[in-house]
Amino acid sequence: MDPFQVRGRFLTALAIRIDVDKPDASFFAALEDKIRTASNLLVGAPIVLDLEPVPNLVDRDLLREVITAIKSKGLLLFGVQNANEEQRALAEAFGLIPVQIGRDAPAHKVRSDAPARTRGLARVENKIITKHVRSGQMIVAERGDLTVIGSVASGAEVVASGNIHIYGTLRGRAMAGANGDASARIFCRQLEAELLAVAGLFKTSETIDTDLRRCSVQVFLEDETLCIERVE
């Protein structure tokens, strides 16, 4: 028997995209501010540095400063994406892994091209599920809202490009605005979710306020922060 096993693993990571060629004092102040306000989302989550808009950011010291600033705040920065050859060499020297990612979906970027995409589609296709969604099942509403009249079990996944409504207990994962629609919301009768996500921003059961457990809630994005609010 082999002394080890190789298994596939999916990993959800957050990407921090650098939009300025020469990060200056105001960049670092903004970064620090962002990390402080969204610390429950960012701290402890795996993070990659997205260098797509800044092919000219190849200054060794500057890049080191950016990496140090992120790491020193307790963020788990492990890789870079969309790096050019020069950047990749630098990143590797700093111990970061070049990650190949097909396409990322930060909220504000998609907001601009989402309407263009929906314009081409004939119509919205909402989906209604009248049974419980069992562990291991995955229900996807690719072009519209998803309504579940029943519960979503632990280990089950419900995904919609629009809103998700669950008239039961949400024990599994729910991902609304899967194509990047930041206005999508999740509603559920009773919250015991493993994961909640809107337009790629997520919270896991560990980071969900325990006071909200078993409550009727809605989940939405506000200032690029995932908010969970009681609805009575």
Partner: peptide, 13 residues
């Protein structure tokens, strides 16, 4: 219970 839930899903499909 979670495994039983998975099996109930398979029984339904």
């Amino acid at each position: 219970v979670r495994d039983s839930d998975r099996v109930l899903g398979l029984l339904a499909s």
